[in-house]
Design a protein around this nucleic acid. Structure first.
Lengths: 250, 250
DNA sequence: CGAATAATTGACCGAAATCAATACGGGTGG
DNA sequence: CCACCCGTATTGATTTCGGTCAATTATTCG
């Protein structure tokens, strides 16, 4: 069941029959090794990618060889669905870890668009949630300091992985190097390292060999000013809003 | 003709008949004074807003009173169209300058969705372009220094205003304070001021009483690593890609 | 085991923030 | 018309956060 996690991390849960329709739209699956480019920037693409296993990035290759991350994806994410409408991508798609993806030819998506308006709407909806995540990244980068950014990012990944059953809320695998985290948070690997140490010293969380152990969920969320509602996630269990939420005197 | 600029800044130009359909979906127009909140965060909204005149922001109100900008909008932008599908907003919408907006009740949009799939697709498309702009903001914040960020932002605004006829490519009005620019670029007002001075000294551009005068378009774009293709804009005239574009050895 | 990759730590530097004071500009009201 | 005010812009002095450079230690994996 390749689509087992599709949209599962999102408020709009797909039904069983919709899942079946999606399964039929898959032309094939493919594996990628960590570091491989899945879709080259500026390529005109004829298919969209559903991530089944692993982590993928969306990034811009800078002229100096650096890689500018704009997005990270977990299993169940439709990585480049928006390419279906945009035709041309403004960024590249790559495998951050070893990955398995399911490929949806745009032709099949076009058929779905014609025949299943309800499902189509959900797919579109998921692109809007991508945009919401982008906005969270903007806030993180523009307004938080190094420690806050890393804490915030770890909370985000915890929430997203929790929604697809890849985290129990306290512990999850995150196969990213400190340099990768730096790319996400706009920091150097060296400084990420220092921040990670601080998080450990403050007993908020610890990272050891790609395992993130959250010691103080509330404290980590507070430290990262993390508000899960941003992501419009299903919260299967715990961790609702943390910092009192928006007061906003009317 | 309130919708005169709608989607005009985008690749997908609407036809005259589509414009007429949109006009009919407007329930009323409204004016807002600079600084006013148009949509409060977490409000459930029943209408979406097309900006007709002025500049609007999308932002998160932080607990410390600061305002975290995630987006800026120019005339012709459907500011919160995505709220139509999301129902609930993850951020507030505000008037940065005095504004005029056209209000589209979601009921009317629902009618359009039923009867005009082609137009519906264009509207959806415009939300994807919002996401593309978000991605550009992420890159700007994560990877550029202060001078590059401001230069990049000015190029973005120039390109977007050019597309709707509010810039001639060399000069445009930008009714933002240096503190506002700082909110966009993740900088303090003080440092924005220093950067603006540098831009003037390097003869790239000058800003005087809300008028941006671009002295060296190529140089400014280079300084800001600006690539207009990000925004999927119609380029009515000049300024195609600047820095050779993606080489990407296959 | 040994090579490569990743993490860690220290010393030093530099970009941007902070704090603080001053100048400007344009609108208001006497 | 001018004086006053308030928001904005400007500039300097100082501090701090994060980057850079460099070396060392762990891990991982073939």
């Amino acid at each position: 069941m390749l689509t087992q996690n599709v949209l599962r991390n999102r408020t709009a849960e797909v039904t069983e029959s919709e899942r079946a329709i999606l399964e039929k739209a898959i032309s094939h699956t493919r594996s990628y090794a960590a570091g491989q480019t899945v879709v080259r920037q500026d390529a005109t693409v004829g298919a969209s990618t559903l991530l089944v296993e692993g982590l993928m990035t969306r990034h811009v290759d800078a002229s100096d060889g650096r890689r500018h991350l704009v997005s990270i994806h977990v299993p169940g994410d439709f990585v480049d669905l928006h390419a279906y409408a945009l035709r041309q991508l403004d960024h590249a798609v790559g495998a951050l870890t070893d990955c398995v993806v399911a490929v949806f030819p745009h032709e099949a998506l076009r058929r779905i668009e014609k025949q299943h308006p309800r499902l189509t709407r959900r797919l579109w909806f998921s692109t809007l949630l991508d945009a919401a995540t982008h906005r969270q990244w903007v806030v993180r980068l523009a307004n938080l300091n190094a420690l806050q950014r890393v804490a915030n990012f770890l909370c985000e990944m915890n929430a997203r992985l929790l929604a697809i059953g890849r985290s129990d809320g306290m512990r999850f695998e995150l196969a990213m190097t400190q340099a990768d985290i730096g790319d996400v948070c706009g920091l150097t690997n060296v400084h990420v390292n220092r921040v990670v140490r601080q998080l450990r010293e403050r007993e908020l969380c610890s990272i050891r060999s790609a395992q993130v152990q959250i010691l103080d969920p509330q404290g980590l969320a507070r430290a990262g000013q993390f508000r899960p509602d941003y992501l419009y996630l299903n919260q299967p269990t715990a961790s609702r809003a943390v910092g009192s939420g928006a007061p906003a005197t009317p």
